[in-house]
Computed example of a mutant assay.
Amino acid sequence: MNNNKWLFAPLLLSAASAFALPQCPQPHLMEQRFEAPSFETGKYTNWSNRFITWLPSFHMIHDEIVAVGKPVTVTAKFDYGSVAHKDLEFETVKFYIRGQNDAQWQYVSTATTNSDGKATLSLPGMSAGQYRIYAGVPADGSGTEGFLTVVEPNTEAVLFDIDGTLTESDAEQIGDYTGIDYADAKDEAYTLARSYLDLGYQPIYLTARVYWYAKGTRKWLSWMGLPQGYLRTSLSNETSLFRTAEYKTEQINQLEANGIKIVRAYGNAKTDAEAFIKSGLSASQSFTIGKDAGHYGTTPILNNSYADHIATHVSNFPNANCQ
């Protein structure tokens, strides 16, 4: 029996004024690094899994943003092998949670992966803040960490694509994936992202990278000196290759339905531009860089650098409407 309602007594939503400003995100808390929770290793539930767990793991948790008080389901994906990407099928995993002010991880529940290597964690409505989720595999001791962000209505955010937008080119993702090298950043990309963080905006990283790139992407963000969450990757090659604009449009609409107010978005591809405009962002809110800058009516950023853009469009941008 799942007793989450008792485990989450300290986290449950408390009454708040409907007129209060949203909480500002706290990048320094998002950037903290924690040791994985300790849990006992055990036997394999599915004995055949022992033949894949010697391979490198590419586990990931699909980050979620949810409105205050709204239940949410978090999905973890377990995958082994840089080439085969074999799913961890029908295996026991353990979920843990850690709030931004918690001193330690809190065990939540045990789940079993399905035939696609996915396990889910259902959580009740919680108060606003940044939460870490950890999912561990007792059979081999591996695991993965992700972010759950609980927001109040009209939490202002700035959205960034990654490849060709924060990185120099789309091809740079191979280095992150293989661990051979970190992707080169676009000129002044760090300053661009950090400027909005300093102004109090929630960062959103929305990429069409497929899920097994999440591990390397988080490492790259940390290497850049940027918080790892909220990071949203695609869960299938088909989506990444053939449904990119549709996928990003859906994700933006979902974010806004959960209380996020995207004030600006940055991309480089035609699919980014299409998603920004189709999701209801205005041309003045939608920025594109690179060879397709200005596509679909978006505002172009010239010279493949953010230097001039920061001076003319960011340095005088107001603080986020938060407290």
Results as ranks from 00 to 15, higher is better:
3 N>G: 13
5 K>A: 15
6 W>T: 15
8 F>A: 06
8 F>S: 10
10 P>R: 12
11 L>D: 09
11 L>Q: 11
12 L>R: 12
13 L>P: 01
33 R>S: 14
39 F>Q: 12
41 T>L: 13
44 Y>D: 08
46 N>F: 12
49 N>F: 08
49 N>G: 06
51 F>G: 11
53 T>G: 04
53 T>M: 08
58 F>P: 00
58 F>H: 01
66 V>D: 00
68 V>Q: 00
69 G>M: 00
74 V>L: 06
76 A>H: 03
76 A>V: 03
79 D>F: 06
82 S>P: 09
86 K>A: 13
88 L>N: 03
96 Y>C: 07
97 I>E: 03
100 Q>T: 07
101 N>K: 09
104 Q>I: 10
106 Q>N: 14
107 Y>T: 09
109 S>C: 11
110 T>H: 06
110 T>S: 15
111 A>E: 08
114 N>G: 10
123 L>W: 03
124 P>K: 02
129 G>S: 03
130 Q>F: 14
134 Y>A: 09
140 D>G: 04
140 D>T: 06
144 T>Y: 01
149 T>H: 06
149 T>C: 06
157 A>F: 05
160 F>H: 04
161 D>W: 03
165 T>G: 04
166 L>M: 06
171 A>E: 12
172 E>A: 05
176 D>W: 07
177 Y>M: 09
180 I>C: 12
180 I>L: 15
185 A>Q: 10
186 K>N: 01
188 E>D: 11
197 L>W: 07
203 P>Y: 04
204 I>W: 00
204 I>E: 05
206 L>A: 10
208 A>I: 11
211 Y>E: 10
213 Y>D: 07
213 Y>E: 03
214 A>P: 02
215 K>Q: 11
219 K>L: 13
219 K>S: 13
220 W>M: 08
226 L>C: 08
232 R>K: 15
232 R>W: 11
235 L>D: 15
235 L>C: 12
238 E>F: 13
239 T>M: 14
239 T>W: 12
240 S>A: 14
241 L>S: 13
253 N>A: 15
255 L>Q: 06
258 N>K: 09
260 I>M: 11
264 R>M: 05
267 G>I: 09
268 N>C: 08
269 A>K: 07
271 T>F: 08
274 E>N: 10
275 A>Q: 07
279 S>R: 07
285 Q>P: 01
287 F>W: 04
288 T>H: 04
292 D>L: 14
293 A>Y: 01
293 A>L: 04
295 H>V: 14
297 G>N: 08
302 L>N: 07
302 L>G: 02
306 Y>K: 02
311 A>K: 13
311 A>G: 12
312 T>W: 03
312 T>C: 03
317 F>S: 03
319 N>F: 15
321 N>I: 02
